[in-house]
């Protein structure tokens, strides 16, 4: 036990933090995309696992072809939008349940990503290319600042959008479809737009992460939806704690990104504790299950049959 604690190096943790923050911010952008579908449209969109890797693949392959790294991110965004658009069509035009439509897109993107990259993994020469989003320790500070700025811009843009007529109709679609249609909103089209936008943002963050780590991998998106959900939920819990009822959409979106950062700092910390990296996805899933389950359990503990039974027994004892 003592040997275990002695083997932990506090400085190593400190050194790992900036990288954790940078990755957390990038995953936070992914969480922003997940927020659009999961929280606003009320759809758990599994296509993001595929579109995240698509973003990375597109960005890396275009950089290898000599494109400007920033420009590749725009193409990654568009590629993600197309993926989301397909999910939307599968869901609205073919009547496939949203969750299954997402799985179909995700699995087809696996093949498409392999086709884009030609093999399972493609790396760029990070030393030779001028990358904005880089894990190069000399420029890590800049990476964090630029990524944080991108996050702020995205949050501000999303917040403004949600306040527009179109954005209000988008929120209404997820909140009450019957009402939305009665008020003339084409809910199917709204869902398609939302899924496209969400996957575009996810692919953008996939592209950023690929540049950050210097390679794209066909498996880089595996479990991305769970990490995105974890970030959204962690952000919500912490946001509620700090702001309570003052949580407006700006803070909701901001805290989704902060949720990503917190997730990654915890990730770094747990790895520092020498938790096996192979088990991290299991841990993430457990965290998400607990955070999703606790509000439900809490509600049920107040009104459950067992509770009613216990109360009845107590009452019976009095007579």
């Amino acid at each position: 036990m003592l040997a275990y604690f002695a083997s932990l190096d506090p400085m190593a943790l400190l050194r790992a933090c900036p990288g954790g923050i940078a990755q957390g911010l990038i995953w936070g952008i992914m969480a922003l995309g997940v927020y659009f579908t999961f929280r606003i449209l009320d759809i758990a969109d599994l296509s993001v696992d595929g579109s995240f890797a698509t973003g990375g693949a597109v960005s890396i392959m275009l950089i290898l072809a000599g494109w400007d790294p920033l420009l590749t991110l725009i193409i990654a965004f568009i590629a993600g939008m197309i993926a989301g658009y397909i999910t939307g069509l599968l869901h609205t035009k073919l009547g496939i349940p949203a969750i299954l439509a997402g799985i179909l897109t995700q699995i087809s993107l696996y093949s498409i990503n392999l086709n884009i990259m030609g093999k399972a993994n493609q790396a760029i020469n990070v030393g030779k290319i001028n990358l904005i989003f880089t894990s190069n320790i000399d420029h890590l500070g800049r990476t964090i600042i630029v990524t944080a700025f991108c996050c702020l811009v995205l949050v501000a843009l999303s917040y403004c959008y949600l306040g527009t007529e179109h954005g209000c109709a988008f929120r209404a679609t997820g909140n009450n479809g019957a009402m939305s249609r009665a008020l003339g909103i084409n809910t199917d089209r709204m869902k398609v737009i939302g899924l496209a936008l969400s996957n575009g943002i996810v692919a953008l963050s996939g592209g950023m992460l690929a540049q950050y780590q210097g390679f794209a991998d066909v498996n880089m998106g595996r479990g991305a939806i769970v990490i995105g959900l974890a970030a959204v939920i962690i952000g919500e819990v912490i946001g509620e704690l700090i702001l309570g009822k003052r949580m407006n959409y700006f803070f909701r979106l901001l805290f989704a990104i902060l949720g990503g950062v917190i997730y990654y700092l915890v990730y770094v910390f747990v790895l520092w504790l020498k938790f096996p990296a192979n088990d991290m996805k299991l841990l993430t899933a457990i965290v998400v299950a607990v955070f999703l389950g606790v509000p439900y359990i809490r509600k049920m503990s107040k009104s459950s049959f067992r509770h009613a039974g216990n109360m009845a027994k107590k009452e019976g004892g009095k007579d």
Binding site: Y161, G163, T164, E165, H166, G167, C168, L183, G184
Partner: peptide, 16 residues
């Protein structure tokens, strides 16, 4: 505000 715009095209003007 949503109801006031019933049946109208909804653009990027402010919702209210």
């Amino acid at each position: 505000a949503l109801a006031l715009r019933r049946g109208q095209s909804r653009g990027l003007k402010w919702g209210i």
